[in-house]
């Protein structure tokens, strides 16, 4: 896993490490070890997507510059469920992370060649995709017609600026965009032929004198598939229903290790001066049921096995805080946007 390419000198590195290990610990921006920078979030930023969110961690409150900025959007497409088309019954989820072209600014990705940038995008995509498209998180309402059509959910995340702690930002933005996603309502259509005399006779009379092709397998034989064969989009006042189980989407905590302690929400300089980082992805099914959806370690350092258990417990605590804060913000956003929609409706009358 590529670490971001901010370069720090040996002296700078040891200064940052000493600050984190000091008692009381001191960081360059005055935060305590487990403090996050301010997070700004807005949903519904891309009107052409089915769900979207823009998230910024650590924006300067005075001039609105800086910070890690991430834009996530969900788009739904109808897919045929057939051999060879890639479609899966019940829908599938594909995630993709791309870094913006602003690669030569001081705090984003300086000195990165386009090859290295591709590698970095691939790393991000890999982590997000493996975590979010896991079957345990799959929403149940992505199917349209059983064994025929389903939604393909593609989540695209664009990193507009990197000022540290990209993974947490990616997961938060992804959660927000997926939370915001509305699946259009569909109604299945069925074409029913009139019951022919033959079948009636068959039912009452003896075994097949007419129905000879019953057992032959023909490519055009659609009788095996029961019920609906197509669907339509009913006209409805809202954009659709939310994804089932949207509460489950995980949050990520990056624990930056400077043994024996750890700290959260690292700036690029701090990221460059820690030798090991542990990413923990937690999903909260209910207030007291937590699952660890994923875990990554990056960097050349090592941690003791005994320390890991403790680390996960600590991580869960932080993740829970992030989760509850994020959820309440998302609910606020829901109210804000729905209120806006209602007001607009009222104004029109």
């Amino acid at each position: 896993m590529a670490l971001t390419s901010t370069s720090v000198s040996k002296a700078e590195k040891s200064y940052i490490q000493a600050g984190i290990l000091a008692n009381p610990p001191s960081r360059s921006d005055g935060r305590s070890l487990h403090d996050f920078r301010a997070i700004a979030l807005e949903t519904g930023v891309a009107p052409l997507a089915n769900g979207s969110a823009r998230l910024n961690i650590g924006r300067n409150p005075h001039d609105g510059t800086g910070g890690t900025e991430v834009l996530a959007a969900v788009k739904l497409e109808v897919e045929n469920v057939e051999e060879g088309t890639g479609g899966v019954d019940g829908g599938r989820i594909i995630c993709n992370v791309s870094c913006d072209v602003k690669d030569s600014s001081p705090s984003a990705y300086p000195n990165l060649s386009s090859g290295a940038l591709d590698d970095l995008q691939h790393d991000y995509t890999d982590v997000i995709n493996q975590t979010l498209s896991h079957p345990s998180l799959h929403p149940s309402n992505l199917g349209i017609l059983p064994r025929k059509k389903s939604w393909l959910l593609s989540l695209d995340i664009v990193i507009l600026a990197d000022a540290g702690n990209v993974y947490d930002a990616l997961f938060m933005a992804a959660r927000a965009a997926l939370w915001d996603t509305k699946v259009p309502r569909t109604r299945s259509i069925e074409y029913k032929a009139k019951k022919s005399v033959t079948t009636a006779k068959n039912a009452s009379g003896g075994a097949g004198d007419m129905d000879v092709d019953e057992d032959t397998s023909s490519g055009f034989d659609t009788r095996k598939i029961a019920g609906a064969i197509d669907f339509e989009l009913p006209d409805y006042w809202d954009e659709g229903e939310v994804l089932e189980g949207r509460d489950r989407w995980p949050v990520c905590v990056s624990m930056n290790m400077v043994l024996p302690t750890h700290f959260l929400d690292a700036s690029p300089q701090e990221e460059a001066s820690t030798s090991i980082r542990v990413l923990l992805m937690f999903s909260f099914l209910s207030p007291n049921q937590t699952t660890l959806q994923g875990m990554r370690m990056s960097g050349p350092g090592e941690i003791k096995l005994s320390g890991l258990k403790e680390l996960i417990e600590e991580g869960e605590k932080y993740a829970k805080e992030i989760y509850s804060a994020l959820t309440s913000k998302l609910k606020d956003e829901d109210i804000r946007r729905n209120q806006k929609a209602r007001d607009r409706f009222v104004n029109r009358i």
Partner: peptide, 18 residues
């Protein structure tokens, strides 16, 4: 000048490489 088009920007999702 470098230009990138967000994959979700158009009606139909499409990724355009550099």
């Amino acid at each position: 000048i470098e230009l990138s088009i967000a994959p979700f920007s158009a009606g139909e999702r499409r990724r355009r490489g550099k």
